[in-house]
Structures are given as structure tokens and as C-alpha cells.
């Protein structure tokens, strides 16, 4: 990630720190009874077992049956999985979800960091700005949807400006083209995530020792170089965390597609994501609980792939 020349003092420092960290991650402790960690984990684990693991097992079982909503089902083996793999809607949704994650995650790792750097400096009124940037997180989905429609529809603000400036001859079909709709939804997700992850980065930025910046400044590094060589290496663990969190939320995206693309999930349903499909299949009068469970499990496997990928990435980076 950092192609800095080895001779530069800050890069050297960062490398040393990285090496130190690689050691730290695996340290054990001396005095310990085997059950001590479990004592610490007890409340958390109890909760997780009851409210996450049990439903998880439940879903696995359901995915092997043809259960419908409020109606029992029989064991059908892997039929639901076979059906999903042969269902074009599943593949569209899978592609959309992967695409969504691939775009949203890098954006949400980097842009909130830039925003955090912007509001980190204590200038007068900064508290107001920080709070204000956080508001999209708490804004209601309906209003967010209305606002973005107003911006993006064919006679909306963005298109009006683009047409006036003669950038485009015809309004861009942001909301009526399957792919563009997905892009629009990504923009909304990123917009909502900016303030949220900004707070994460602010927490991390507070810990970057001022001396590092000062040393770099004395070396004559400009703001951009300081950002690249001091700030980024120091907040790297936080970037990993934000990457994980945003990947998880990107894989779960539903609302943005729904508010911009309606209940069909965009024209022809072309913008549906996996969670969208799961809801559609599983709810309603003829809700196919079993099939929906199978798609949930497939979504889970996809997440597993992503998280393994993430771990590989972060490990490769540390060595």
C-alpha cells in the first residue's frame, strides 16, 4: 500500500511499528486457568448463542425443507440450493450484491477518513459541523428516499443541471435503468455511511501522535504526503474494521434499493440484491420460508468468502 522509499524516516517508523504489531497479535498470558476467557465471554456468548446461533441452526434446517410461511414442510434435501443455482434472479441478485460491496467498501473506507481529517482540527464551530455530518445516519429512510429521488429523477436537479450545461443531451436514467439505479443506491449508502464511519475515524485519529505529524512537517512533507505516510498507516486497524463493517452492511443492503427502485427492485427487478430477494421470496402470502432460508445460507457463504478475503488482505499487508 505504501510505496514510500525505505530511507524516509516516517516510512521506517511505520514499518517498525508494523513489525511490532505482528508480534503483539499473538501473545498469550502467563497466569491463567483455562476457563477464565469463558468467564469473560459468558454474557456475550450466552446472548449470541440464544439469539444468533439458534436462529442460524434453525435457518440451516429450514433450508433443507419446503416449508412455507405458517405451514410446515418436509425434508427436501438440497432442492432449494439446486433451485437457487438455477434461478436467474438469484444470479442477478448475487452479482448485484458483489458489485455493491466491491464499490461501496473502498469508498466507505477512504471517504469518511477524508471527512474525519477535515473535521479533526478544532476550529470554532467544529462541534456543530461534526454533529451535522452525523445526521444522515439518523434521517428517516422515507425522507432520504424523497430527497434523492428529487435529485436523481429524470426531471430532477442533477439532470436539469447536466442538460443545461449540455453535458448530456437526454436526461440520465439514474432511477429507471437497472445498473444506474444500483449505482444511485450505492451513492445513497455511501452518503449515509460518511458521517457514521467519520466518527470511527475521529476516534482513531485522536491517537495519532502529534509528534509524528510534526516530524514529517519538519521533513518538508506536504499535507497530502503527511496524509499518505503518517495518517493512513496510523489508522490502518481502523480502516480494516471499517472495511469489515461496511462490507457487512453492503451485503445486507435493502432499504436503498427499495426506496429508489420500488418494491419490484428496479425496472424488471434488475437491481435486486440478495437480501431483497430473500425478503421477496420469504414474506407475503405464499412466502417460501425454506427457499428463502437457502438463499440466506448462500448469502452467508458469500460473506464468509469476503471475510476470509479480508483477513488474507490484512495479513498479507502486515508481513
Amino acid at each position: 500500500m505504501s510505496p514510500a522509499p525505505r530511507t524516509s524516516p516516517k516510512a521506517g517508523r511505520a514499518a517498525r511499528r508494523r513489525a511490532a504489531r505482528a508480534q503483539e497479535t499473538d501473545h498469550g498470558l502467563v497466569h491463567r486457568r483455562w476457563w477464565t476467557p469463558y468467564l469473560f465471554l459468558l454474557p456475550g456468548l450466552a446472548m449470541v448463542l440464544t439469539f444468533s446461533l439458534w436462529p442460524f441452526v434453525n435457518t440451516v434446517v429450514l433450508s433443507l425443507t419446503d416449508a412455507q410461511i405458517l405451514r410446515g414442510g418436509g425434508f427436501v434435501g438440497l432442492d432449494n440450493y439446486r433451485r437457487a443455482l438455477g434461478d436467474p434472479a438469484f444470479w442477478t441478485a448475487l452479482t448485484n450484491s458483489v458489485l455493491y460491496t466491491a464499490v461501496v467498501v473502498p469508498a466507505l473506507v477512504l471517504m469518511p477518513l477524508a471527512l474525519a481529517v477535515l473535521v479533526e482540527r478544532k476550529v470554532p464551530g467544529i462541534g456543530f459541523f461534526r454533529s451535522a455530518y452525523y445526521t444522515p445516519v439518523i434521517a428517516s429512510a422515507v425522507v432520504v428516499g424523497l430527497m434523492w429521488q428529487w435529485l436523481l429523477r429524470s426531471d430532477g436537479l442533477v439532470n436539469t443541471v447536466l442538460v443545461r450545461l449540455r453535458v448530456v443531451a437526454e436526461p440520465v436514467p439514474f432511477l429507471t435503468d437497472g445498473t444506474l439505479l444500483l449505482v444511485s443506491a450505492m451513492i445513497v449508502t455511501i452518503w449515509k455511511g460518511l458521517g457514521y464511519y467519520m466518527v470511527f475515524y475521529l476516534a482513531a485519529l485522536g491517537n495519532v501522535p502529534r509528534s509524528l505529524h510534526e516530524a514529517a512537517a519538519i521533513d518538508g512533507a506536504g499535507a497530502l504526503r503527511r496524509f499518505l505516510h503518517v495518517t493512513i498507516p496510523s489508522v490502518k486497524p481502523m480502516m480494516l474494521l471499517v472495511g469489515t463493517l461496511s462490507a457487512i452492511s453492503a451485503l445486507r443492503v435493502f432499504t436503498e434499493v427499495y426506496i429508489l427502485g420500488g418494491e419490484s427492485g428496479g425496472p424488471g427487478g434488475d437491481s435486486r440484491t440478495l437480501p431483497f430477494l430473500i425478503r421477496e421470496v420469504g414474506l407475503g402470502f405464499a412466502g417460501e420460508t425454506g427457499y428463502a432460508a437457502a438463499i440466506s445460507i448462500l448469502l452467508f457463504l458469500l460473506t464468509l468468502v469476503f471475510s476470509l478475503l479480508g483477513r488474507r488482505l490484512s495479513k498479507g499487508d502486515e508481513r
Partner: peptide, 14 residues
């Protein structure tokens, strides 16, 4: 028809 009304995501009251 309003272009975006195709998917039913637009508010008719509005």
C-alpha cells in the same frame, strides 16, 4: 407518464 413512476417508487400525492 413520469419516467420514474414505472417502478412505483414515486409518490403520487407529491
Amino acid at each position: 407518464m413520469p419516467r420514474e413512476s414505472l417502478t412505483g417508487s414515486q409518490d403520487i400525492n407529491q
